[in-house]
Design a protein around this nucleic acid. Sequence first.
DNA 1: CATGTTTTTGCGACTTTGTTGCAAAAATAG
DNA 2: CTATTTTTGCAACAAAGTCGCAAAAACATG
Lengths: 129, 129
Amino acid sequence: MNSLALLKSNKLSQTSSRIDILEVFLESDTGLTEKEIDERIDSKYDRATVYRTLKIFREKGIIHPIIAENEMTRYVLKKDPVEHIHFKCELCGNVFCLTEVNISGIKLPKGFIKKEANFLISGMCPGCN
Amino acid sequence: MNSLALLKSNKLSQTSSRIDILEVFLESDTGLTEKEIDERIDSKYDRATVYRTLKIFREKGIIHPIIAENEMTRYVLKKDPVEHIHFKCELCGNVFCLTEVNISGIKLPKGFIKKEANFLISGMCPGCN
DNA sequence: CATGTTTTTGCGACTTTGTTGCAAAAATAG
DNA sequence: CTATTTTTGCAACAAAGTCGCAAAAACATG
């Protein structure tokens, strides 16, 4: 995937900060916090800019959040639009999108209307095991 | 449920802060943030005390956390030890423990070992619908 | 490619959540 | 009742995230 094309297809202006931050995501296979992004771009941009960029990427559906306990929100590139489980390894810290796990069987009781879902399982990943 | 007995059975000393905070939980059917607890006890105790109390209650398994995006951690009394989904209504803010939804069908791929799970669905509850 | 308009950025100040060390106060054990 | 242990309040702190505003960069258009 190309960062310039990705910005274009989402109708986002091509600023260096957006390109750089997007490239960080493209090069990472893990969920990233704002802090981790900041490190990887050597604090080249203001924290406010990074936060604003993350917000926009999210609204566009380029990235999606992983919400874990006692942790800052992490983001990963949204490769698969299908709703899925996230797995966070407690040892290496890696976050995996388990798109192969079927969660379509989860049905809410009458009257509950789903808008968004967030499933996170933590434990040990195959690599650390 | 009685707050004094609950403290005793968990081998916690009976301080007025623990009793009061536990009572707030016993009287609430919603997940509560530290701030909300603070309001309900009229800031009778220091914030640090409330945080420390929440931590201990959690370690003892008296309460359990609800982790939602862009939200402070909420806690609810752990009535049912069975793993379950939480539902958060975006309108009224109420959090429901959907113990009736069966999630035992969720199986992780080979090599992944589950330690903890956090399932949160947000949307609209029957009351607001 | 020059220029006017729109969008984005950096800065700084701020809010909120949550933590920690330490001395005083309260709870508990005997 | 008293000694010991635990808990509390205070104050200071750290880190995440937001916001207004002026400057800078990107973009559209001729």
